[in-house]
Amino acid sequence: MREFGGQALFLDRDDINTDEIIPAKYLTEITKMALQPYALEDLKLGGFDPRRDLAGKNVIVSRANFGCGSSREHAVWVFEVNEINTVIAASFARIFRQNMFNCGLLAIELPQADLDTLFNLGGEVQIEVDLAAGKLRAKGKRQAEFSFTINEFDRRLVEAGGWLNYADQHY
């Protein structure tokens, strides 16, 4: 199982869709690494510059219905090859959420109030993920700790390093 957590990138908008995360014109690539320069290229978010703002980040923090739209797992892979290991949001679209766990990555849902606190910590925010304890520890100008739960089956997928490993062992 990989390490989770790191520096946070805040995307303060609902309904960020997978076309914005990786536009369809790049789906003709047949390696995950080839997607790397194009992450969040079409994101509609004032002042956001993907190349500047994504560098050095490991955790994306966003709002409701993150990853809606197309089923393209490229939206998860483009995060993975940009060193993003966790997405924290108010809620996820089903397919994106499953794609994250299927790749052994974390999609963590937090209540609205906790997310508001996280968005308002100020400064560069570093997030520690303690999967065993179900705790997030975030440190910016201010600090905060949050509890989270993930589906037990999804936890097993993460521990197995993804759904293919799990399925090959069990079915």
Binding site: S71, V76, I95, C103, L164
Partner: peptide, 18 residues
């Protein structure tokens, strides 16, 4: 149901989906 590539891959290999 629509799924991602890993679900598809397991479907191709094992004929199952979660």
């Amino acid at each position: 149901a629509g799924v991602g590539t890993t679900d598809l891959e397991v479907g191709i290999l094992k004929g199952v989906c979660s």
